[in-house]
Design a protein around this nucleic acid. Structure first.
Lengths: 133, 133
DNA sequence: TTCACTGCAAAACGTTTGCAAACAG
DNA sequence: CTGTTTGCAAACGTTTTGCAGTGAA
């Protein structure tokens, strides 16, 4: 979705603002960061409303939530299946767009006896900046 | 490590108890659950000490921490690389012992320009119980 | 007029920290 | 003695909730 298409969704102004913040960002923002950004565009918006909006937008499939570790969730405009790389030194999080071999899903499902829905992986390592230091 | 070997590590009684709880469990316990179990063996142990011990034991490489979602961390006696299956209905978490093709790590590293350390995946789906309901 | 949404404050949750007392080498 | 570890309570950061008030259909 592009920012210009937001208006067509019939969202409230608050939800529109929150969605706009996420679609306009090139990073994976935390709820706090979304709040700060949204507040600068719509000063009366409250923390709870940002959280409510994030949940609403997530349930509606407009955004995705990424949870790593016990810190804050991050929100992503990228809602299709993809993987992530996480820097073990600075915490930088980047998307990885790769197909996973169907074979792996099959083997994992067989091993666990789960009925598979999705399989996502996380590469942990040093990001380019940290590995050059 | 086996429970019988714990005594040889020169740990304090509290840390020994916490480690014993984790090694004796067949589940992935949360810190809270570890605390409850430890308290039943050593009634004077405090919450903070359980957390301190968990951190100590993790840093020492005796246990591993698993973090999914924003809920509580879980602690695992299994410290080698392995993957997990997570039930999207009931939250059940099971281990998957599988080799990952070196090819995937290579491709992920190439894509992200990260210097890879580990790659772990999570299969999300329905556990045997939930899928039969 | 109805029903969903907002804003605020307070609570909930998991986790960490400051500090004095207890302990081990 | 010295440095580490404990136990307690209080704080922290993130997220959720209760509730009265607002706003749109």
């Amino acid at each position: 979705m592009k920012v210009g298409e937001i208006k067509e969704l019939g969202l409230t102004r608050q939800r529109e603002t929150v969605l706009d913040v996420i679609l306009s960002s090139h990073e994976h923002l935390t709820a706090n960061e979304v709040f700060a950004e949204a507040k600068s565009k719509l000063p009366t918006i409250s923390f709870a409303t940002v959280y409510n909006s994030l949940r609403f937008l997530k349930d509606a499939g407009h955004i995705a939530e990424i949870q790593f570790g016990n810190g804050a969730s991050r929100f992503d405009k990228c809602t299709h299946r993809h993987d992530h790389a996480l820097c073990t030194s600075c915490g930088k999080l980047v998307d990885i767009e790769m197909e996973i071999p169907a074979d792996i899903v099959k083997r994992a499902a067989k091993y666990s006896n789960f009925q598979p829905e999705t399989l996502e992986f996380t590469l942990r390592g040093l990001c380019p900046q940290c590995s050059s230091n």
